[in-house]
Simulated assay, not measured.
Amino acid sequence: MSARIDHAVTSGTFSLDGETFDVDNNVWVVGDDTECVVIDAPHDVGVITELVGERAVKAIVCTHAHDDHVRHARALGDAMGAPVWLHPDDLVVWRLTHDVEPDGELADGQVIEVAGTTLTVLHAPGHSPGSVCLYAPELGVVFTGDTLFEGGPGATGRSYSSWDVILRSIDHVLFALPDETVVKTGHGADTTIAAERATVPGPGSPRPE
């Protein structure tokens, strides 16, 4: 059975810097009928467990540690008997939500094998210090979390974020991928690397007002 991508949308809130917003988050599951990897753990453990079904979960991989992506990571990991992995540069953000540390660390270039395919971890800071993207070349996709969306970069107006850094990450990391790569985001619709080349300003560009 070849690897496939399963998808659901969950609704909840995002809180940071004393403000709270309603948000819809994508949940991505990569695997086959036997095993899978869950990308992020937003809002609703029940929706995610239903999406996973009876499969063995190798890991819950966090693209970053904003609370709308990790609030239920520990509960999901416990329910599925799966480790929770996060880039260590995002521990400062993780600790705003959790008192217990993740189970393992993600590193740039790390390869996660699941269901006969691979996900390569790409450290892409800017939206947060430890933001990562997950590139699956055999599937022709990259999971970008909140680093790149249809229409441009992720938000950088809050604590632990940087406009200049996210532009460098997109230019040096994501725009090194093939143009036809499908971008699967943390919120909203898919796009492609080619489409977003026209929307993202180059490194050093001033942040829009």
Rank of each mutant, 00 (worst) to 15 (best):
G145N: 10
V92I: 15
C133P: 00
D179Y: 04
P125S: 12
E113T: 15
P88W: 02
V121F: 00
V114W: 09
H127I: 00
D99I: 00
P129E: 07
E105Y: 05
A136C: 15
A124C: 15
D179N: 12
G186T: 14
G151V: 12
E150K: 15
G126D: 08
E180H: 14
S162F: 04
V121W: 01
E180T: 11
I112L: 14
A115Y: 10
D164W: 08
W163N: 04
T185E: 03
E105S: 14
E113K: 14
S159Y: 01
T147H: 04
G157S: 08
F175R: 12
E180G: 08
S131F: 01
P153Y: 05
G140E: 08
D89I: 00
T120E: 13
Y160K: 12
T147E: 02
F143I: 15
V100T: 14
T147Y: 01
D99F: 00
P137R: 13
A124H: 06
V114K: 10
L106Q: 13
D99V: 05
T147R: 05
D171N: 12
G188V: 09
D179K: 05
A189G: 08
L122E: 03
H98L: 05
V165F: 00
E105H: 11
A115M: 08
H127N: 15
V92N: 00
A115N: 06
L167G: 01
P88S: 04
G130H: 10
A107C: 08
A155R: 15
H187V: 15
W163D: 03
S131V: 00
